[in-house]
Design a protein around this nucleic acid. Sequence first.
DNA 1: CACGGTATTGAACGTTGTTCAATATTCCGT
DNA 2: ACGGAATATTGAACAACGTTCAATACCGTG
Lengths: 202, 202
Amino acid sequence: MARRSDHSREEIREMALGAALTILEEEGAKGLSARKVASAIGYTVGTLYLVFKNQQEMVLHLNALTLDDMNEWLESRSAHCSAPRDCLQTLAEAYIDYAMEKGARWNLLFDSVVAEHEVLPEWYQQRLGRLFGRVERMLAPLKSEHEAIEIERAARVLWASVHGICTLKIRHRMDLAGGQSTAQMAQMLIDNFLRGFAESKK
Amino acid sequence: MARRSDHSREEIREMALGAALTILEEEGAKGLSARKVASAIGYTVGTLYLVFKNQQEMVLHLNALTLDDMNEWLESRSAHCSAPRDCLQTLAEAYIDYAMEKGARWNLLFDSVVAEHEVLPEWYQQRLGRLFGRVERMLAPLKSEHEAIEIERAARVLWASVHGICTLKIRHRMDLAGGQSTAQMAQMLIDNFLRGFAESKK
DNA sequence: CACGGTATTGAACGTTGTTCAATATTCCGT
DNA sequence: ACGGAATATTGAACAACGTTCAATACCGTG
């Protein structure tokens, strides 16, 4: 029996999340189970339920870590850039690369369908917002010509679109894609959207 | 014991798929299990495995039915239209409505991550291709100005983008979207993309 | 040292996908 | 009409899953 108070609840949480990430990378989402996580950190299932309400809550925290991780990834890959077009293209490629590189974690972000009228916790929403914020900042140079709210909306539309390309490609739902790579598709999207967006300031 | 040859294998397949669809609508994806499907059609688990290699294969056939169903849905909602912009907007809205209306079926289409180097069967790919074909036909009027391959690529990019908007909204990953509805986001996407696409014929 | 409190356990429950020996039913040749 | 071959169907069995909770092992305090 692990000695009582060997680790605080918070420590156990962190250990569990770390172990879960390792399992996720090595065995994929199907291999992730409560028992495996527990035994990986030297505890048993019961302890896990002392620290997480259920598996879904654990996945939520896992996803928060992934959002943080992705945020750093995007940060380090889009530090210096000038024109909005290039910035966005770089950002999109970084996003795609992350999804390819850490497929299991990335998939887990979007796997669970949130129940009808359930809301994601505030600390989670905030992390999602950070992503859109990045895109908004890159569209900001066009702010003089567009209302701020318009920028905000364009950022979400553009980002969701890049995400769509990414997810369909990774899940092999677009195999007959005329030989385009994901990055090329993102480029086509960004090019045309931006051109149209600039043009729309009648 | 159900009488032998009461139903042909093909009949059992169809019955199973029908029952699965009902369960899917009534209880969602989590409620769908081999035993439930089997008992719903008056057989037992074993019989199901006589007719489907495994659950994944059953879901694949289920998804084929959904793609057919969605194809009809899109057909009946985009029959008559003139300008590409309006056609595409109508199509996007029909797609979004389908996803909202038949959420469980629609989600199942994209749930499973296809294994690394596994390929989807030809009859499945063909059904996916039908979707993109619809978009291509609507972009076709611009064909004189763009190469055919360019149209094909644009269709995929645009469709994947609409899908991205749809999926992020339905899975509640975009709650702070500046109050835009999914349809409005799709409209913004299509408007700007099309404007940029038209402009790109330098 | 003993006791109260609690961290931790692990067996238990109901469920899942999948397999396969056993059984029930039909069909065909005699 | 009957017996045996062929096969459709069963359902028990297995390993694994999420989740719960009485029982247990441990620690700090008196």
